[in-house]
Amino acid sequence: MDVLIELKNIIKVYNTGKVSVRALDGVSFSVGSGEMLSIMGPSGSGKSTLMHIIGFLDRPTDGKYFFKGQNTTGFSDEDLARIRNKEIGFVFQSFNLLGRFTALENVELPLVYAGMRSKDRKEKAMYMLEKVGLSHRAHHTPLEMSGGERQRVAIARALVNNPSLILADEPTGNLDSKTGVEIMDIFKRLHEEGKTLIIVTHDPEIAGICERIVKIRDGRIVEDF
């Protein structure tokens, strides 16, 4: 199994005025291609910060992050935007869809920034919506959809550019338990298809579905099994 990401002694310090907070304090671990793992921890443990760094939304204060064997330390903002576009698919707790755009347009968005032609974009986005069972809702806006539908649109958006890694941050946090199970089923299916998934959660039941659980507390990994 290839190593997809490798974190070495990642440190993240936030300077808020006089106080500096050490959100991550020497985190090291690696994730293999095709793995499905969950990052668990109470709020304030640093798991969100870790997810932001893994997803290239943020940079570590210190430490090394290898993505597909490449050291990402010196990457420019534009490099990071490109990696987020092509390699990472985000799924958020609060869906983070653009309310004024249709489901199809939301799914198209990563392809817009990838510079794909309109016709190809539409085709590919439609295919993804079909895959999450929402092709009949393609021209509705998120405001006209249920929570479960919105999250499926978000998953379609995360998948559309065929990323190497899917990062989900409490993906079932805003859903009822039945819908939550449906979403987790989609994730399981993606795992079976060979996708690499990292799910950040504090729900042990969700974590239980994953084959590997990384527990984090006070910015350090306390368990990894």
Partner: peptide, 16 residues
């Protein structure tokens, strides 16, 4: 602001 964040998360560059 949030829309801008979302766009950045899916790969919008600063110049976009």
């Amino acid at each position: 602001t949030r829309e801008i964040g979302i766009r950045m998360a899916v790969g919008a560059r600063r110049k976009d």
